[in-house]
Amino acid sequence: MTAVTAGRGGRSLVDLVFRARELSIVAALVLLVAVTTGVNGNFLSGQGVKDIFLNASILVLLAVGQSFVIITKNIDLSVGSVVGLVAFTVGDFLAADHGRGIVFAVILGVAIGAVCGLANGLLVSFGRVPALVVTLGTLYVIQGLDHFIAHGRQINAVDLPPALLSMGNGGVLGIPYLPLIAVLVMVAAGYYLRSYASGRDFYAIGSSPEAARLAGLPVRRRVMTAYLLSGGLAGLAGVLWLARFGTVVADAAGGWELQVVSAVVVGGVAITGGVGSVYGAALGALLLTTITSALVVLKVDPFWQQAITGALLLLAISVDRLLALRVARILRRRNARHGS
């Protein structure tokens, strides 16, 4: 009987740790919104809330893609530069040829992003080199490519088809398109990761690459897929970026990779792989975006934003680590007590 009680205990303990993470993000969000609104009532005005959701949408898309990669125990630092490259090249195409529609823009953007993801995936899964170094390299290669194409020019909203711009700022029934798209992608990804056998493979690979190999799971193919998704979603995010802002220079989303990684890790996706959900990652993205907006409202120097992003990332990995150590110690004691 001891096995059962120990087991049930282990289950509820781990469950609790998980839920604690998502609950604490929600609590932090509520606290942040309450304090900010207390200082400045305009924070919760219609426009303010809409801005937060519009800004968060793009980050959520990137966070969903990044979640796939981090769950498999890898990382993709190149997403920021992919967003920049896609936003600029797609904008360039549309500005040159007004006949092209939104569908073309989205397909082109996703395709460019997927090609970048493919390159990363090939290098990481077949070259067996540390993902962080590879994607740090491709970050600069893609960024350089972007600058090379842009050559100091910028894309202006007036050159873009109005349909695209209305996708970025319009909506149906008062709900803007961007959050709709982000939520749709998030739910689809979350459902796939939870309810499909191939989705569970991502967790298995990140949880123990060695066991995954022994179990005959297609490790390389899944890692490739993760990068492909991350790249493709970064491409989609690039198109939405263009649609939302209209005006785009070469280094549009420079440095965003740090925001994305922070959002995902703050949202409870363990940097050591195998743990977390896209919902948590999306919550993390929402929290980071809200902090940025709150800083403006609270009249804090906006230059604090990057430092806070970094600090939150460090806090999240430290808390994860401390919790993991604690759980391990409790389980060790419990096993000792019940007789292992």
Partner: peptide
Amino acid sequence: RLGLPSLAVTIGTMALYRGLAYV
């Protein structure tokens, strides 16, 4: 002390220190 991977830590401090530079 925490046994965290240096890649993860320094990617965080990469943002933190650059952010502090801007501050």
